[in-house]
Design a binder for these strands. Sequence first.
DNA 1: CTAAGTGCAAAATGTTTGCATACTT
DNA 2: AAGTATGCAAACATTTTGCACTTAG
Lengths: 140, 140
Amino acid sequence: MPAGSTYRTKQREILLKFFEKKPGVHITAGEVLEYMNSRGESIGQATIYRQLEKLVDEGLLNKYAMTPAGPACFEYVGMSAHKSGGTCFHCKCEKCGRLIHMHCDELEGISTHILNEHGFKINPLRTVFYGICEDCNDEK
Amino acid sequence: MPAGSTYRTKQREILLKFFEKKPGVHITAGEVLEYMNSRGESIGQATIYRQLEKLVDEGLLNKYAMTPAGPACFEYVGMSAHKSGGTCFHCKCEKCGRLIHMHCDELEGISTHILNEHGFKINPLRTVFYGICEDCNDEK
DNA sequence: CTAAGTGCAAAATGTTTGCATACTT
DNA sequence: AAGTATGCAAACATTTTGCACTTAG
């Protein structure tokens, strides 16, 4: 499938710049739209969805399904994911909604184990652990 | 929060019976609705969503967000989840869409590790590993 | 009798699409 | 010029809600 080339449009640049300033932050399409509108940088929502999808395909953004029937989140990862083998897992707190980034060698063992023993090749970029974060657990 | 009691309605019994016959199988609300309609057991969709949510709260069903902007899946777990400490993780193949159940002691170590080292208490029932399954990986 | 559940149709979300127009290469 | 991208509005799919009515306890 010869993917077809990508044009360098104004809208794409705006979106890219927006995400580049927030590496690792999780943002919904709706939030992007709202931000753009609030700044006069009005980009149609269709464009936002289409570009976001494109950026995900290109590997510049990751996309997460946080809640069923809720909006998806996008996160800028740039080339970082490609460079370092440093896999990054994510934890989503079911209580406060916070998203935590976990960078840990031992966790990479998980991938290996599951691949070897269960034949399943994990995509850490799309995998999210749900649970309760430290803060919420403490105050409980 | 005094939860309020749960009435034993005809619709609830039908739903429960339906799920009990399919432990571990993942079913969307839409599929339940379709099934019910096709059998004359017509239950309003609002009721299905409301009961499903209730059953999730009670711990009889688990709910998974499989895809962003796609339907959520429900799985009957009955009391099994409460009895055995046997935690069950799930893997979702990004290619064929298949959902694999993983039952593995070693994996339980993950929970422990993340809890101790990262202070995050995983909810294995809601956590899904995304990636590529064995079959899809082979034929690639 | 009262609390809880039901069904319908309408709204609310979040995302995708058709199509004519405009921009990139 | 050819291939992409944009914007709008309409279409979609899934889930939620308001309200009058029914049923379980």
